[in-house]
């Protein structure tokens, strides 16, 4: 499968997914670490892709949603943003709401 199709499939089949450097347990970048921690605190399961382990995704993700940096968070197939946006939304309580709604809707279908 073409890499952009593979990414599309991932963001559409997971209500919440983060593309990060490292894993939530072993993050390898401060920005990825904070982003994953915020998602964990939302209290729902989420998917992740370690871009350091997948060179094809590492190279092509920036053009997928025209977003040049990592990490990238997608909810319901839509790019939410990177670390700064995810944290700002978490602080306002918006992220928690979005994550819970996305996961609940997905379970219902």
């Amino acid at each position: 499968m073409d890499v952009l199709e593979r990414i599309k499939e991932q963001v559409e089949s997971n209500p919440v997914i983060v593309y990060m450097k490292g894993t939530p347990q072993m993050p390898q970048c401060g920005f990825s670490s904070r982003t994953a921690a915020a998602l964990q605190q939302c209290g729902e399961e989420f998917a992740y892709v370690n871009v350091l382990m997948d060179p094809e995704i590492f190279q092509n993700l920036p053009q997928f949603a025209n977003w040049p940096t990592f990490p990238q968070v997608y909810i319901n197939g839509e790019l939410i943003g990177g670390c700064d946006i995810t944290l700002e939304m978490f602080e306002k309580g918006e992220l928690q709401k979005m994550v819970k709604e996305a996961v609940a809707t997905n379970k219902g279908t």
């Binding site: 450097k21 390898q28 970048c29 401060g30 670490s33």
Partner: peptide, 16 residues
Amino acid sequence: VPTSPPCRGGSKARTS
């Protein structure tokens, strides 16, 4: 403004 996170040294590769 919030403080930026500390580095974790995982990758020196570019972000884009």
